[in-house]
């Protein structure tokens, strides 16, 4: 392998890991909702789209940096998630219907409305937030003159990745160290037992949906400096988060992180060596392979290792 080829490979792997970190954040949002609610939120990507447009408006109207707009977008998305859960999903949980997947179809309806409203307000143009540091990067040769390969590290990607890591760590702290976090985990593990122990399950559901939405909203703000937006962008991110949750194991947070990284690296490899248009097909191939060979996802592998010891 010549040094150029090695350089391309390393560069691809690095951008895959950076992408994977962001994917993990999207996946975690979906997986905690799935764990507590036992439903798939098909409006997940659309919620992310809403956050991206919030960041876009803040940037173009007030010149607020997309990274700072997390402080606005995340609470806004939290409230949006709470409202969806409280006023739309909770009533449906009580309704008797023939088709069991009513709530999932409901989230599709919500996603359709959100995407279409965005089209009406912003038109279906591609939009960007042209931040001044968008093309800045660090080069390995600047620090190590005789390095055999030159690798660059894009500034916005790295910042996004770091923020994603910090938020994931914060979430871990919240889920394991605080009362509310513990109640959420208890609800996910066993709804009836949690209720018997005095956990307010209804409230936990509402909070969880809010947190899941806030997480994906944050991911949206982290994506916008390096990506572009259009109203129908949500669908692809819903699929991505679904593949990540299947890959990671349903409802597993650690699994979602690993799943996100695997998907990011794989997509980056597909884009470099096969072609940009094929990345979604690669996604799907991972998905099929996981279903056939490790139906429980990465989480089941981790668990079986632990039991083996």
């Amino acid at each position: 392998m010549s040094s150029i080829q090695l350089e391309v490979l390393l560069q691809t792997l690095i951008s895959g890991i950076l992408l994977g970190g962001l994917y993990a954040l999207i996946g975690i949002g979906m997986t905690i909702i799935m764990g507590v609610m036992k439903i798939i939120n098909l409006a997940h990507g659309e919620l992310m789209m809403v956050a991206m447009y919030i960041a876009y408006v803040l940037f173009s109207a007030f010149h607020i940096d997309p990274y700072l707009s997390i402080l606005v977008a995340a609470p806004a998305l939290f409230l949006l998630g709470v409202a969806i859960q409280k006023f739309l999903i909770n009533p449906v949980l009580r309704v008797e219907a023939i088709i069991p997947e009513n709530q999932v179809i409901l989230t599709v309806g919500i996603g359709m409305v959100l995407a279409n409203l965005a089209t009406i307000i912003f038109q279906s143009d591609y939009r960007q937030t042209p931040v001044p540091y968008a093309t800045k990067a660090w080069y390995l040769r600047d620090y190590w003159k005789d390095s055999p390969v030159d690798i660059s590290l894009s500034l916005p990607w790295t910042v996004s990745f770091t923020v994603a890591l910090l938020i994931t760590a914060g979430l871990w702290f919240f889920l394991t160290r605080t009362d509310t976090g513990k109640s959420i985990r208890a609800t996910a593990q066993d709804l009836d037992a949690a209720q018997l122990m005095g956990v307010n399950v209804q409230r936990m559901r509402v909070i969880t949906f809010g947190i899941g939405s806030a997480l994906v909203g944050t991911a949206g703000c982290l994506f916008i400096p390096i990506y572009y937006i259009y109203p129908d962008i949500g669908g692809q991110f819903t699929l991505i988060s679904f593949v990540i949750t299947i890959l990671g194991g349903l409802g597993s947070t650690v699994g979602a992180i690993i799943g996100g990284l695997i998907l990011g690296i794989f997509e980056s490899l597909t884009a470099t060596y096969i072609g940009m248009g094929w990345a979604p097909v690669g996604r799907f191939m991972i998905f099929v392979a996981v279903l056939i060979f490790i139906p429980g996802g990465v989480a089941s592998l981790l668990r079986s290792r632990k039991l083996g010891k």
Partner: peptide, 18 residues
């Protein structure tokens, strides 16, 4: 706005006429 109207119709049907 036809997707919005369809989406709202879907939500209404699921909640009131499941």
């Amino acid at each position: 706005a036809h997707h919005t109207l369809f989406g709202v119709l879907l939500i209404v049907i699921i909640i009131f006429l499941p």
